[in-house]
Design a protein around this nucleic acid. Structure first.
Lengths: 232, 232
DNA sequence: ACGCAAAATTTCATCAACTGCAAAAAGATG
DNA sequence: CATCTTTTTGCAGTTGATGAAATTTTGCGT
């Protein structure tokens, strides 16, 4: 009964931790004069759903939280939930489809920026990781939840699978300009390795700075391993 | 249908080979005199379920096949299905938990067999991949299905997660004997990379020989990538 | 052989994720 | 205000998965 009916109490002045609609209100504030009301509400609802999902899962665990709970907490119907996310897991992780920007892709395909495959891969991954540094807090919460609920970790693979074709095309296109011997599959896995290693290192560093900051170290570790094997 | 045991209850007087029990019968013959009948039936049912799942999915696609279909094809109830497998995917992939043998682990931890981290990792992964070469046909079918249904690919990550702790301990233990700088997370991802690359290469080679045969090439590709970055 | 106890299967009930559909509500527009 | 478009919502239905009791199967001592 009246779980979240605060449609009238628009009190954005005080930051009272009212979990239900606080986020919708603040989010509406966040983008005061941009686009239409429709777009703003859409973003606000989406954010509210993510926040509700993350908060509930952090408190009760992934399996103990139902879509209905999340929807109720965000003040929408369960059916609407699935208009925004394909699955419960997606909502918990705040899944955003962050693609690669056009110029980064073009540079990579043309054999740049340095011409060294590993370094250029690092640059590619850095641009992939950039959005994670922006939506900072939400990504942090998602990472923490991944620790607690290993099942969410599968998202990395889902992401990779969704972009496998695109990555494969990138690698093939670059091969024409700057030949290399590695298979697309190995390179795709290498991208995944770099992403995951950087994110974990970022977490170990207490989420300071940008996840991409830890990419050089990941590459250095790789080089160390291989170098140690070469010298006999 | 019961030529194996002495006192058998031949319940169906007409022992007509109904399609659903065909595989059970043949599987029962396969292991003539080992353990009790209970154990043999268990294995037979398990095999029947896997075969039914793989055949049905190959024909109709993963989502078009329900657990009830698989169970019916194998001649058991749907509830029994879940006594054998945790999920539909597990059945389709014939999920077997292949661990690491004790001596391989000990050798690795003691800094062996060659003392070079990358090469020793290769050996470790080879022993991990060995069972895949034995249960040949079932693994082949699973790999083919993974091609058609990328969602099944998540299994790699699930496996990794399940053994992450163990692998981490291995790496830490070895570090004491033969120090290295790489983080456990990166090494775990590297293991995953080697497994996946080897399996894909094996598939491209038409499933001839052993998946582990393609590990040297995977390592060589890695070395190439890193070397190309080091020169100049 | 017999019958009993343990183990496994089946039946039945329940929950939760997810989807399609059509009506209703709300924003956008002139 | 009238109308068009987009989005939400309720509802029925399918499917994966789990729990518990009822029933069957198996192993084994007597």
């Amino acid at each position: 009964m009246a779980p979240t009916s605060s449609r009238e109490t628009v009190a954005p002045a005080d930051a009272a931790p009212r979990p239900d609609l606080r986020e919708l209100a603040s989010a509406l504030e966040g983008t005061p004069a941009e686009q239409g009301l429709r777009e703003r509400k859409k973003l606000a609802r989406r954010a509210a759903l993510i926040d509700a999902a993350q908060q509930l899962v952090a408190e009760h665990g992934l399996d103990a939280v139902t879509v209905e709970m999340i929807s109720a907490e965000a003040g929408v119907s369960a059916r609407t939930f699935f208009n925004y996310f394909e699955s419960k897991d997606d909502a918990v992780l705040g899944a955003e489809d962050t693609g690669l920007s056009e110029d980064v892709v073009r540079t990579f395909v043309d054999g740049g920026p340095t011409g060294k495959l590993l370094t250029d891969l690092r640059v590619l991954v850095a641009s992939l990781l950039a959005p994670a540094g922006e939506a900072h807090d939400r990504v942090v919460r998602a990472m923490d939840l991944m620790q607690q609920e290993p099942r969410l970790l599968q998202r990395h693979v889902v992401w990779m699978d969704r972009h496998k074709t695109r990555l494969g095309e990138l690698f093939e296109a670059r091969r024409a300009t700057a030949p290399f011997s590695a298979s697309p599959e190995l390179l795709t896995m290498l991208v995944l390795l770099l992403i995951r290693t950087a994110l974990v290192a970022w977490e170990h560093a207490g989420y300071t700075g940008n996840p991409a900051d830890h990419l050089p170290d990941a590459v250095a570790q790789l080089i160390d391993i291989v170098s140690a094997d070469l010298e006999s």
